[in-house]
Every structure is written in C-alpha cells, then in structure tokens.
C-alpha cells in the first residue's frame, strides 16, 4: 500500500529500545581478533634484514643496529598507517600487531616509540 509514514511503526518501537550507540569510553565494544593496532617489536627475534623498512609504505619504521646482533626499532605512530605490511614482510616474526588503538598524544614527540631491551614501546 502506497502511503506516507511507512517508517512510523519502526520509530515508535525504537522508543522502547536501548540506544544503538555505546557510551564510549565508559562502555567498549572491544576490537575484533586480528585488528590492526599498534605494532609490537621483539628485539631478540630481529636479524636486521630491514625488509620491514623496505616495504613500509610511509617510512614509519626504522631498525637500528645498537650492538652486535642487537637491534632496536623506532616506530613513528604518526606516520604509521596500520597496514601491517611489515608484519607480513618480517621473516622471523619479530613484529606483531596488537589491539591497542587509543594512541593519541598531546606531544608530537611522544608519537615516536622505541622498542629495545629496556624500552617496550614507549617514547624515548
């Protein structure tokens, strides 16, 4: 039947339903498994092949040699596009993705995070 107000019934029923949105940050839906968030680097596994640096589309990742067979990783979270190509490129699985996504900082310098023996993903 062609007439106006076809969505009226739906509207009325919505009055008695919970809101479709969540009261973030008090309520959280949680990230799906495999969500591409902040990267994690394990220094012990790195062999310094620099494949991640070569494949990174934005040049966000830097691997530095600090001693014999010891590497540190510097990631610019402002440049990172969270594509996780470096995770695919790494032959030794030294890079992983985590589900951490709340990465905003008030200071731009704090966006550059370092992974080495002492530092586990904080700004230097």
């Amino acid at each position: 039947m062609i007439r106006p107000g076809r969505m009226f019934k739906q509207l009325v029923s919505s009055f008695f339903k919970k809101p479709a949105t969540l009261n973030y940050p008090a309520e959280r839906s949680g990230m799906p498994e495999g969500f591409r968030g902040k990267l994690k680097f394990t220094p012990d596994k790195c062999i310094g092949c620099l494949m991640c640096m070569r494949d990174c589309p934005t040049g966000a990742i830097k691997i530095k040699k600090i001693a014999e067979k010891q590497f540190e990783c510097e990631i610019d979270l402002g440049k990172c596009i969270y594509c996780a190509q470096c995770v695919d490129s790494c032959p030794k699985k030294a890079l992983e993705i985590t589900q951490e996504f709340e990465l905003a900082k008030l200071d731009r310098k704090k966006l550059t995070v370092v992974f080495n023996a002492e530092n586990k993903g904080e700004a230097r």
Binding site: A20, P32, G34, F35, R36, I81, C83, A84, Q85, I97
Partner: peptide
C-alpha cells in the same frame, strides 16, 4: 547507517579494519 554497522563489523572481523582493508 545503524544497519550498515553490521557489515562494517564483519569487514573489520575479516580484514582487521573497517575501511582500507589491506
């Protein structure tokens, strides 16, 4: 747009992101 969230959630489940699936 409320119903579109259903498919967005599925896309993020399969690919790891809501847009720019990679």
């Amino acid at each position: 747009w409320r119903d579109r969230e259903v498919v967005m959630d599925i896309l993020s489940l399969l690919t790891g992101n809501r847009v720019n699936y990679g």
